[in-house]
Amino acid sequence: MDDQQILHYDSETRREEPRGDCVQGAVDPDFWDGETRSLRGWQWGFEANLVTLWQRYNQTSSDCGQTGMDRTMEDPGPEGVSHSPFMYGCELGEDGSAGGYMQFSYDGGDFLSCALRTRTWVAVVPQAQITQRNWNEDKALLTARAYLEEPCIEWLQKYLQHGKAALQSKPPMAQVSDKPSSRDGLTTLSCQVHCFYPKYVAVIWLKNGEAQPQETSCSGVVPSTDGTYHTWVTIEINSSSNHNYTCNVEHMSPDADLQVAWDKSRKGE
Protein backbone atom coordinates (compact mmCIF):
# COMPACT_ATOMS: atom_id res chain seq x y z
CA MET A 1 0.00 0.00 0.00
CA ASP A 2 1.57 3.23 -1.23
CA ASP A 3 5.26 2.29 -0.95
CA GLN A 4 4.87 -0.10 1.99
CA GLN A 5 4.73 -3.90 1.68
CA ILE A 6 1.76 -5.19 3.66
CA LEU A 7 1.40 -8.85 2.55
CA HIS A 8 3.84 -11.56 1.48
CA TYR A 9 3.58 -15.01 -0.12
CA ASP A 10 6.19 -17.09 -1.92
CA SER A 11 6.40 -20.59 -3.35
CA GLU A 12 8.84 -21.81 -0.72
CA THR A 13 6.86 -21.00 2.43
CA ARG A 14 3.51 -21.51 0.66
CA ARG A 15 1.98 -19.23 3.25
CA GLU A 16 0.67 -15.64 3.16
CA GLU A 17 1.85 -13.47 6.02
CA PRO A 18 1.30 -9.85 7.05
CA ARG A 19 3.96 -7.18 6.71
CA GLY A 20 3.82 -3.87 8.56
CA ASP A 21 1.15 -2.34 10.77
CA CYS A 22 -1.56 -1.71 8.18
CA VAL A 23 -3.05 -5.22 8.33
CA GLN A 24 -2.65 -5.80 12.06
CA GLY A 25 -6.17 -5.99 13.48
CA ALA A 26 -7.75 -5.35 10.08
CA VAL A 27 -8.62 -9.00 9.43
CA ASP A 28 -9.79 -12.04 11.38
CA PRO A 29 -7.24 -14.76 12.28
CA ASP A 30 -8.74 -17.22 9.79
CA PHE A 31 -8.19 -14.71 6.99
CA TRP A 32 -4.63 -15.99 6.49
CA ASP A 33 -5.74 -19.60 6.05
CA GLY A 34 -8.22 -18.65 3.34
CA GLU A 35 -5.77 -16.38 1.55
CA THR A 36 -3.06 -19.02 1.71
CA ARG A 37 -5.33 -21.61 0.07
CA SER A 38 -6.25 -19.12 -2.63
CA LEU A 39 -2.65 -18.19 -3.39
CA ARG A 40 -1.56 -21.81 -3.54
CA GLY A 41 -4.12 -22.16 -6.33
CA TRP A 42 -2.64 -19.09 -8.00
CA GLN A 43 0.79 -20.68 -7.76
CA TRP A 44 -0.44 -23.77 -9.59
CA GLY A 45 -2.09 -21.56 -12.21
CA PHE A 46 1.10 -19.59 -12.82
CA GLU A 47 3.08 -22.78 -13.31
CA ALA A 48 0.55 -23.99 -15.90
CA ASN A 49 0.48 -20.58 -17.61
CA LEU A 50 4.26 -20.55 -17.95
CA VAL A 51 4.15 -23.83 -19.89
CA THR A 52 1.58 -22.26 -22.24
CA LEU A 53 3.63 -19.08 -22.64
CA TRP A 54 6.74 -21.10 -23.33
CA GLN A 55 4.97 -22.80 -26.22
CA ARG A 56 3.36 -19.54 -27.38
CA TYR A 57 6.73 -17.81 -27.67
CA ASN A 58 8.32 -20.96 -29.20
CA GLN A 59 11.27 -20.75 -26.82
CA THR A 60 13.88 -23.32 -25.89
CA SER A 61 15.45 -23.51 -22.47
CA SER A 62 18.59 -21.74 -23.70
CA ASP A 63 16.51 -18.77 -24.92
CA CYS A 64 14.92 -18.02 -21.55
CA GLY A 65 15.66 -14.66 -20.04
CA GLN A 66 16.21 -14.08 -16.35
CA THR A 67 14.40 -10.81 -15.81
CA GLY A 68 11.15 -10.22 -14.00
CA MET A 69 9.45 -8.85 -10.95
CA ASP A 70 6.72 -9.62 -8.44
CA ARG A 71 5.35 -13.18 -8.66
CA THR A 72 7.66 -15.47 -10.64
CA MET A 73 7.61 -19.18 -11.35
CA GLU A 74 10.30 -21.45 -12.77
CA ASP A 75 9.81 -22.80 -16.28
CA PRO A 76 9.86 -26.56 -17.00
CA GLY A 77 13.14 -26.41 -18.93
CA PRO A 78 16.41 -27.81 -17.60
CA GLU A 79 18.25 -24.51 -17.90
CA GLY A 80 17.37 -20.88 -17.36
CA VAL A 81 14.38 -19.28 -15.68
CA SER A 82 11.44 -17.52 -17.30
CA HIS A 83 9.18 -15.08 -15.50
CA SER A 84 5.52 -14.20 -15.87
CA PRO A 85 4.72 -11.32 -13.48
CA PHE A 86 1.12 -10.43 -12.72
CA MET A 87 0.51 -7.01 -11.22
CA TYR A 88 -2.73 -5.40 -10.14
CA GLY A 89 -3.81 -2.64 -7.83
CA CYS A 90 -6.53 -0.13 -7.03
CA GLU A 91 -6.20 3.56 -6.29
CA LEU A 92 -8.25 5.90 -4.12
CA GLY A 93 -7.90 9.67 -4.57
CA GLU A 94 -8.38 12.30 -1.90
CA ASP A 95 -11.49 13.44 -3.76
CA GLY A 96 -12.99 9.94 -3.54
CA SER A 97 -12.20 8.98 -7.14
CA ALA A 98 -11.20 5.36 -7.70
CA GLY A 99 -9.16 3.56 -10.33
CA GLY A 100 -7.18 0.43 -10.89
CA TYR A 101 -4.97 -1.62 -13.16
CA MET A 102 -4.30 -5.28 -13.94
CA GLN A 103 -1.59 -6.54 -16.28
CA PHE A 104 0.55 -9.54 -17.16
CA SER A 105 4.12 -9.58 -18.46
CA TYR A 106 6.47 -12.23 -19.76
CA ASP A 107 10.27 -12.16 -19.44
CA GLY A 108 10.44 -8.38 -19.01
CA GLY A 109 7.92 -7.49 -21.74
CA ASP A 110 4.24 -6.55 -21.52
CA PHE A 111 1.82 -9.33 -22.48
CA LEU A 112 -1.81 -8.59 -21.54
CA SER A 113 -3.58 -5.74 -19.76
CA CYS A 114 -7.07 -4.95 -18.56
CA ALA A 115 -9.03 -1.91 -19.79
CA LEU A 116 -11.27 -1.12 -16.83
CA ARG A 117 -13.50 1.30 -18.71
CA THR A 118 -14.62 -1.37 -21.18
CA ARG A 119 -13.93 -4.34 -18.87
CA THR A 120 -12.00 -6.11 -21.60
CA TRP A 121 -8.56 -7.66 -21.91
CA VAL A 122 -6.16 -6.07 -24.39
CA ALA A 123 -3.37 -8.03 -26.10
CA VAL A 124 -0.10 -6.09 -26.06
CA VAL A 125 1.79 -8.55 -28.28
CA PRO A 126 0.58 -11.00 -30.98
CA GLN A 127 1.30 -14.00 -28.72
CA ALA A 128 -1.41 -12.73 -26.34
CA GLN A 129 -4.26 -12.62 -28.87
CA ILE A 130 -5.46 -16.15 -28.16
CA THR A 131 -5.54 -15.43 -24.42
CA GLN A 132 -7.32 -12.14 -25.07
CA ARG A 133 -10.14 -13.87 -26.98
CA ASN A 134 -10.53 -16.66 -24.42
CA TRP A 135 -10.51 -14.36 -21.41
CA ASN A 136 -12.93 -11.85 -22.90
CA GLU A 137 -15.42 -14.71 -23.34
CA ASP A 138 -14.94 -15.99 -19.77
CA LYS A 139 -17.60 -14.52 -17.45
CA ALA A 140 -15.62 -15.62 -14.41
CA LEU A 141 -12.83 -13.25 -15.42
CA LEU A 142 -15.32 -10.39 -15.60
CA THR A 143 -15.73 -10.89 -11.86
CA ALA A 144 -11.96 -10.67 -11.43
CA ARG A 145 -11.91 -7.32 -13.18
CA ALA A 146 -14.89 -6.08 -11.17
CA TYR A 147 -12.85 -6.83 -8.03
CA LEU A 148 -10.71 -3.76 -8.71
CA GLU A 149 -13.71 -1.46 -8.67
CA GLU A 150 -15.37 -2.54 -5.42
CA PRO A 151 -13.77 -5.15 -3.10
CA CYS A 152 -10.26 -3.87 -3.72
CA ILE A 153 -11.29 -0.32 -2.82
CA GLU A 154 -13.09 -1.58 0.30
CA TRP A 155 -9.95 -3.42 1.44
CA LEU A 156 -7.83 -0.37 0.70
CA GLN A 157 -10.07 1.79 2.88
CA LYS A 158 -9.90 -0.80 5.66
CA TYR A 159 -6.10 -0.97 5.53
CA LEU A 160 -5.89 2.82 5.47
CA GLN A 161 -8.00 3.03 8.60
CA HIS A 162 -5.93 0.50 10.54
CA GLY A 163 -2.62 1.75 9.22
CA LYS A 164 -3.29 5.46 9.59
CA ALA A 165 -0.57 5.94 12.20
CA ALA A 166 1.96 3.92 10.25
CA LEU A 167 1.37 5.96 7.09
CA GLN A 168 1.68 9.37 8.68
CA SER A 169 4.58 11.52 7.58
CA LYS A 170 7.64 11.27 9.78
CA PRO A 171 10.29 14.03 9.68
CA PRO A 172 13.91 13.03 9.11
CA MET A 173 16.71 13.05 11.65
CA ALA A 174 20.29 13.75 10.57
CA GLN A 175 23.76 13.20 11.99
CA VAL A 176 27.09 14.42 10.59
CA SER A 177 30.42 12.67 11.07
CA ASP A 178 33.89 12.68 9.51
CA LYS A 179 36.73 10.26 8.94
CA PRO A 180 40.05 10.25 7.04
CA SER A 181 39.60 9.49 3.36
CA SER A 182 41.37 6.68 1.54
CA ARG A 183 43.10 9.43 -0.41
CA ASP A 184 45.89 11.23 1.44
CA GLY A 185 45.14 14.71 2.70
CA LEU A 186 41.39 14.36 2.37
CA THR A 187 38.56 13.93 4.87
CA THR A 188 35.18 12.35 4.13
CA LEU A 189 32.17 14.07 5.65
CA SER A 190 29.14 11.83 5.99
CA CYS A 191 25.54 12.92 6.63
CA GLN A 192 23.28 10.09 7.82
CA VAL A 193 19.58 10.84 7.43
CA HIS A 194 17.09 8.40 8.97
CA CYS A 195 13.62 7.77 10.46
CA PHE A 196 11.71 9.60 7.70
CA TYR A 197 8.55 8.71 5.76
CA PRO A 198 7.62 8.83 2.92
CA LYS A 199 10.82 7.96 1.13
CA TYR A 200 11.26 11.04 -1.06
CA VAL A 201 13.98 13.24 0.37
CA ALA A 202 16.60 15.66 -0.95
CA VAL A 203 19.98 15.81 0.79
CA ILE A 204 22.97 17.86 -0.30
CA TRP A 205 26.14 19.30 1.21
CA LEU A 206 26.54 23.07 1.44
CA LYS A 207 29.95 24.77 1.43
CA ASN A 208 29.75 28.19 3.08
CA GLY A 209 26.03 28.13 2.32
CA GLU A 210 26.45 27.16 -1.36
CA ALA A 211 25.16 23.81 -2.66
CA GLN A 212 27.82 21.36 -3.86
CA PRO A 213 25.89 18.98 -6.18
CA GLN A 214 28.94 17.85 -8.15
CA GLU A 215 30.92 16.96 -5.03
CA THR A 216 28.05 15.34 -3.12
CA SER A 217 27.84 11.53 -3.38
CA CYS A 218 24.50 9.86 -2.53
CA SER A 219 23.92 6.27 -1.36
CA GLY A 220 20.27 6.04 -2.37
CA VAL A 221 17.20 5.79 -0.14
CA VAL A 222 16.64 2.37 1.48
CA PRO A 223 13.91 1.05 3.82
CA SER A 224 14.42 0.45 7.53
CA THR A 225 12.83 -2.38 9.51
CA ASP A 226 10.30 -0.03 11.16
CA GLY A 227 8.75 1.13 7.87
CA THR A 228 10.73 4.37 7.67
CA TYR A 229 13.65 5.11 5.35
CA HIS A 230 17.27 6.13 5.63
CA THR A 231 20.02 7.42 3.40
CA TRP A 232 23.44 9.00 3.64
CA VAL A 233 25.46 11.41 1.51
CA THR A 234 29.17 12.13 1.59
CA ILE A 235 31.61 14.75 0.40
CA GLU A 236 35.42 14.72 0.36
CA ILE A 237 37.20 17.86 1.55
CA ASN A 238 40.75 18.93 2.27
CA SER A 239 41.58 17.83 5.81
CA SER A 240 42.94 21.30 6.63
CA SER A 241 39.90 23.10 5.21
CA ASN A 242 38.57 26.11 7.12
CA HIS A 243 35.35 26.28 5.13
CA ASN A 244 32.00 25.69 6.77
CA TYR A 245 30.15 22.56 5.62
CA THR A 246 26.48 21.89 6.31
CA CYS A 247 24.21 18.98 5.47
CA ASN A 248 20.94 20.30 4.04
CA VAL A 249 17.85 18.04 4.19
CA GLU A 250 14.48 18.70 2.53
CA HIS A 251 11.46 16.46 3.12
CA MET A 252 7.70 16.74 2.60
CA SER A 253 6.88 16.29 6.30
CA PRO A 254 5.65 19.45 8.06
CA ASP A 255 8.58 21.53 9.37
CA ALA A 256 10.93 18.72 8.30
CA ASP A 257 13.63 20.70 6.50
CA LEU A 258 16.81 20.93 8.54
CA GLN A 259 20.49 21.79 8.35
CA VAL A 260 23.20 20.07 10.38
CA ALA A 261 26.61 21.71 10.40
CA TRP A 262 29.95 19.89 10.55
CA ASP A 263 31.67 20.65 13.84
CA LYS A 264 35.30 21.18 12.82
CA SER A 265 36.42 21.27 16.45
CA ARG A 266 35.54 17.56 16.83
CA LYS A 267 37.31 16.43 13.66
CA GLY A 268 38.11 12.74 13.64
CA GLU A 269 36.24 11.90 16.86
Rank of each mutant, 00 (worst) to 15 (best):
K199C: 06
M252Y: 12
S113K: 14
D28P: 03
R19N: 10
C218V: 02
D70F: 15
Q214S: 07
A174M: 06
G99L: 03
V125N: 07
R119F: 10
D10N: 15
G220T: 03
N134R: 14
S190R: 00
S240V: 10
E74W: 13
T234Y: 00
G99N: 06
I204Y: 01
K179E: 05
A202N: 07
Q161V: 08
L148N: 00
D2Y: 10
P151K: 00
F31C: 01
D3Q: 12
D95Q: 08
E79D: 09
V193R: 01
G220A: 03
P223F: 00
E91D: 12
E79G: 07
T188M: 01
S61G: 07
T231G: 02
E154I: 06
D2G: 12
D110H: 11
D226S: 06
Q59H: 07
S84G: 07
H83E: 06
D21T: 09
H243R: 11
Q175S: 13
S190N: 00
P198Q: 06
D263Q: 12
C195A: 15
T231D: 01
W232T: 01
L112N: 01
E17S: 15
G108N: 09
G96I: 08
V221T: 05
W54I: 08
S62Y: 14
R56I: 04
A202Y: 07
C191W: 00
H162L: 10
A128K: 00
S82W: 00
S177L: 05
G80C: 05
G100I: 03
N242F: 13
C22L: 11
I153G: 05
A140K: 14
E137Q: 15
K170F: 06
V222N: 00
A166F: 09
V122Y: 04
P18H: 05
Q214N: 08
Q168S: 14
G227H: 00
R117G: 04
S62T: 11
T60R: 12
M69H: 14
M69V: 08
Y9I: 06
D138K: 12
K179H: 12
I153H: 07
P223E: 01
E269Q: 15
G65V: 07
S241R: 01
H251W: 03
N244I: 05
S265G: 05
E137L: 15
M73Y: 13
Q132F: 04
R56E: 06
S219W: 00
D110Q: 12
N242E: 13
N136G: 11
W205E: 02
H8T: 15
